[in-house]
Nucleic acid binder design. Structure first.
Length: 788
RNA sequence: GGUCCCAUGGUCUAGUGGUUAUGACGACUCGUUUACACCGAGUAGAUCGACGGUUCGAUUCCGUCUGGGACCACCA
């Protein structure tokens, strides 16, 4: 018997340990059941799970637990994304060191050690604690040998297919992190700056041009105006003298200029922004580098050499002012591209980088996305939007320490690219050598020092997890059934995985996509450290339990943002208490038959109730099939509370307390079946408390080791009609109302009058109705409650 | 600038071409010794964001607008 004083925390820890020890969620290689495979998102190791993770992973877990009960052999692995910058940062912070102060291999070793011994295990605890039903033995890290091997294989395969290339190109560069970054890694940030009107000289006359980046003057290569702008028509093909630096540049026309903006005439510098790069390519302009990779001015800038960008900007502005070449300056707030991981302003610099060629595949990319089954559907727009907006090939090289190496060397003599052979993977070009000589005969090679973009590896997650257990089952597991994830990484992880899979295998990596929304604060605002409105899931679990947190996460539709409301957590906790008590009541009254024995004939009221239960089963099953777990929750919850506990339990109380024979047996059978059904319906959402109830009461009579391995409920044979059930409840409510009005106890005895229609309708449940209303008799007449 | 999502009692929300528009929290009034005070029953509380259109009928479908949010682009 479950004790009255119930300890949620102990309960949850107990069943979590049980699931792990008994391997309840283990993928069964030998099973003949149909497979349901999940491409679980590998969260970036950052020390702690945040509340958005908690909600999103809970939501995917509802769907997956349902599939398991619905008879699938579930492949649900887990991985952590832990190569690259975030881990470097975490290691630097934890150890109080800087990567640049120590030898590269030492630092990498330290990262690996900390990851394995500390970060990954500690991090996983949070996921285990909220009851994510992964097979924790299928656990990868995006930096482990298996992942290195697969990521490098991916590179080799793309290389052979002509899909990767190395090129000198303007690349987005983070001066803080000292690495190239991809389009997906930038974000916009509003920063204060100034709009400066400065004076160029054309044939001795002043030409005013607006710029926010005067420090790029030394890299100025041309000046553009709109071809239809009459103000500047006369300047066509003339030259302008650049202030302070005294060299001349050509004045040209181009439609990309907006005549409305500022002075309507613009200087083009290498590389101020995207348009500058387009002009450089279009007109084959000179490339001048004014800023180096550390974010300092180059020798091109003469006196300003070595200054950081912002300092140089200040100095140049003041020098312009002194020289009378600054006509105007007004402060503005504008959006600047920054690196999302560190917040530093992005610069475009010329560097040699590796790219995946895919800009030619936009049409195909759209088709690939269309072929996925999106839940909810509108999330596809995000994908399509991203594809349509792509302007660059995928930059995959990163100038970092901790990451997966390119399996590449360059011949010291002829410079040819030498790629590794598949059999030597995973390879570290800095330690290992190519297996064969270069075609020029040289045996000396220079290793590629760059590492692969994290997303290059994590876009291989289906394979990272599958190959961890057995290569042979690839055909059975791939494409995977489900890709669950939050909407923020559609353009990163999802998009890249789709691209990679199609390039490598010619097919999509998964069939269904379940996209979850975001967690907002109680006022619907985004949570952020700076606002101080962040809620830690660990605290929530500590206070309310994992089931309550999951109960909260289940209350919102897939894809909708959910706001954190403390009262929702309270509701979850109350639900747990209620279902525990209801179970106590049921089993207190089951005696020796335990509710398994079916009476010869079910009481009419019991059939009416079971009929309602059946419609709940139907609705919940249908909803789960459509990935609508929130409907399952609300349907089952309403039925449990309103039909089961508030009414059915009250109605049959007297029958189980005092009844005899089949009448009692019928109630016992119904209680048993209904409760078992209900805990099964809730099992995917609140797995702990339902396991507790199952193990405590049902286990000895049911065969399954765990409720989570039991069969999803099927309809129970019963004849009933909705109308009679509802009318019975309405009459009961009317009686309660009358008692409440008269300030009488609900137990008080009455004489009840019902009109003829009602009387006929409830004839077959009259005895039960009398018991629950406390009616000594029910007469025909206008509705009336008389107290005796 | 483009695309998308959202708007329902004080708060959070369910839902529908015709319903007394759902539930929870909160408020108020009662009640209770064989599941539960982490309780039960009852009451009040909503012109379903605004304006147009389609329709016999719109909270629901369409359009416009307002407000909130997201993604992308631009940002000299």
């Amino acid at each position: 018997m479950v004790k009255n004083k119930f300890n949620i925390k102990e309960c949850e820890e107990k069943w979590r340990a049980f699931w792990e020890k008994e391997g309840i969620f283990k993928f069964d290689l030998k099973s003949k059941k149909k497979i349901y495979s999940v491409d679980t998102p590998p969260p970036t190791v950052s020390g702690k799970m945040h509340i958005g993770h908690a909600a999103s992973y809970s939501q995917q877990d509802f769907l997956i637990r349902y599939k398991r009960m619905a008879g699938f052999n579930v492949f649900y692995p887990f991985g952590t994304d832990d190569n690259g910058l975030p881990t470097e940062r975490l290691v630097e912070k934890t150890k109080g060191i800087r990567a640049s102060d120590m030898p590269r291999d030492k630092f990498v070793q330290l990262c690996m050690k900390l990851l394995k011994e500390k970060f990954q295990q500690e991090y996983l605890e949070d996921w285990k604690r909220i009851g994510i039903s992964c097979d924790w033995d299928i656990l990868y890290s995006t930096i482990d040998d298996n992942s290195r091997k697969i990521a490098q294989w991916s590179f080799l395969d793309l290389f052979k297919k002509g899909r990767v290339y190395r090129k000198d190109a303007p690349a987005m560069w983070c001066p803080e992190c000292q690495t190239g970054i991809s389009q997906a890694e930038c974000e916009d940030k509003s920063l204060e700056s100034s709009f400066n009107t400065i004076v160029f000289k054309v044939e001795g006359k002043d030409l005013a041009i607006d710029t926010t980046r005067p420090e790029l003057l030394p890299a100025c290569v041309a000046i553009f105006y709109h071809p239809e702008d009459k103000r500047y028509k006369s300047l066509k093909s003339k030259s302008a003298k650049v202030p302070l630096f005294d060299f001349e540049v050509k004045i040209m026309e181009d439609e990309r200029v907006d005549p409305e903006k500022g002075t309507g005439i613009v200087m083009c510098c290498t590389f101020g922004d995207q348009t500058d790069m387009e002009w450089q390519r279009a007109y084959n302009l000179e490339i001048k580098e004014a800023i180096d990779k550390t974010g300092k001015m180059t020798s091109l800038s003469g006196a300003y050499k070595g200054m950081p960008v912002k300092e140089a900007r200040k100095k140049i502005i003041s020098d312009l002012r002194d020289a009378g070449l600054l006509l105007n300056q007004k402060p503005i707030v504008h959006d600047v591209k920054v690196h999302e991981r560190c917040g530093a302003e992005i610069e475009f610099v010329k560097s040699t980088q590796w790219f995946v060629k895919y800009l030619d595949l936009k049409k195909e990319m759209l088709k690939w996305g269309e072929n996925l089954n999106w839940h909810p559907k509108f999330m596809f727009h995000r994908y399509a939007n991203w594809v349509k907006g792509l302007q660059w090939d995928w930059l995959i090289s990163r100038q970092r320490y901790f990451g997966i190496s390119f399996p590449v060397w360059y011949c010291k003599k002829c410079g040819e690219i030498k790629i590794a052979e598949e059999k030597q993977l995973p390879v570290d070009p800095m330690q290992d050598k190519p297996l064969k000589k270069c075609s020029c005969g040289s045996e000396e090679f220079i290793p590629e020092k760059d590492v692969l973009d994290t997303w290059f590896t994590s876009s291989m997650t289906p394979r990272l997890s599958i190959e961890l257990i057995d290569k042979k089952i690839w055909e059975n597991l791939f494409p995977m059934s489900l890709r669950p994830q939050a909407h923020d990484i559609i353009s990163f992880w999802l998009f890249n995985t789709v691209v990679k899979s199609n390039l490598h295998y010619g097919k999509n990596p998964f069939k269904e996509v379940a996209i979850s929304g975001f967690v907002l604060d109680p006022h619907g605002k985004k949570m952020s450290k700076s606002k101080g409105n962040v809620v830690a899931p660990q605290d929530v679990v500590e206070e309310y339990g994992a089931d309550a947190l999951r109960f909260w996460a289940s209350s919102v539709k897939l894809g909708d943002d959910i706001s954190y409301q403390e009262k929702d957590l309270v509701a979850g906790k109350k639900f747990i208490n209620k279902i525990l008590n209801a179970s106590r009541f049921v089993f207190m009254n089951l005696e020796k038959y335990g509710g398994k024995k079916k009476p010869k004939k079910l009481e009419v009221l019991d059939e009416l109730f079971l009929d309602q239960l059946n419609s709940v089963i139907r609705d919940c099953t249908e909803s789960f099939e459509k990935y609508e777990y929130s409907k399952v929750k609300s349907r089952a919850e309403n039925f449990f509370w309103q039909d089961f506990t508030d009414n059915y339990l009250e109605i049959v109380k007297k029958r189980v307390y005092q009844g005899k024979g089949d009448k009692k047996l019928s109630a016992q059978y119904t209680l048993y079946q209904a409760l078992l059904t209900l805990i099964k319906l809730f099992a995917p959402i609140t797995p702990f408390i339902t396991e507790e109830i199952y193990q405590e009461y049902f286990k000895k009579l049911e065969k399954d080791k765990s409720i989570h391995l039991s069969e999803w409920p099927k309809e129970i044979k019963a004849k009933g009609d909705k109308k009679t059930w509802q009318r019975t409840l309405e009459i009961l409510a009317q009686v309660r109302q009358a008692k409440s009005k008269a300030q009488k106890s609900m137990n008080s005895e009455i004489i009840l009058s019902l009109d003829k229609e009602d009387l006929t309708l409830i004839e077959k449940v009259k005895e039960d109705l009398m018991a629950v209303t406390g009616a000594k008799e029910i007469n025909e007449g206008e509705f009336k409650v008389v107290f005796v």
